[in-house]
Amino acid sequence: MLQFILKRLGLAVLVAFTVSFISFSLLFLSGDPAAALAGETASGEDIEAIRRLYGFDRPMLVQYGDWLMSALRGDFGESYYFKLPVASLIGDRLGVTMLLGVCGISFALLTAVPLGVVAAIRPNSIIDRIALFLSVAGQAMPSFWFGLILIVVFAIQLGWLPPSGAATWKHFIMPTIVLGYYAMPAIMRLTRAGMLDVLSSDYIRTARAKGANETRVLFRHALRNAIIPVVSLAAVQMGFMLGGSIVVESIFALHGAGYLAWESIARNDLPTVQALILIFSMFYIVFTFLADVLNAWLDPRMRSS
């Protein structure tokens, strides 16, 4: 097990470096940063001056090495727009995004897994049909539309919840539902399919033949095996939620990291965008690593391979 964890950890670090390099070079390919910074009316000399000032005239590898060494120390440079250290800028926003992400994935898992299990126990029952309807609706509805509907109903018509902002826990209810509902269908379908598959397997019959009761059969013997693919999916969804909650953060005016990313791209704020891409990809890497470890704990066959 320890060997497995170390192997995965090594792999995660390698992926992290690769991702950081690719994201760094992609931003250089997307245009001349000096020209963009200088603005449309700048003269050739101005652009050259800016190029030298920011060090864009050095070879790209040198710039990357420089940036990476600072990044490892937690220094992501200064935002062109805010004129503040990027690290503290992101630090302020990350709290909101992480809270939203944790709430979103929790909401998704807490609704999707029980629903998937019940749907698998009674396939084609009323509950199964309802679960199917909910998941199709969730997959078909765009987040921005669903978010607006919720605002219209619960904030404007009923006045139960605040429409935007992040001041209290009440502000997080609708964003959580919108974000979680987006991830729910896939998790639900995978849980249902996994449970259906496992429940018809020979070892479930063995468990029953031993005299285990239905609760024990379902949770100890079946769900433990059926949940393995769900763990991997949830990890990817979680990474997506932390990095890709841009739409939800914009609708509900939650000033999180996603919102910051969107603003910074529009403003050509290179250091901020680079740092955010790095942090978002780190989230994916960390969650994938955690999912691998959790899966190895759940499934002994994975440990030996």
Partner: peptide
Amino acid sequence: IFQEPMTSLNPA
């Protein structure tokens, strides 16, 4: 005792 020993034990 069942026919399929390969699949009759819980892998987890």
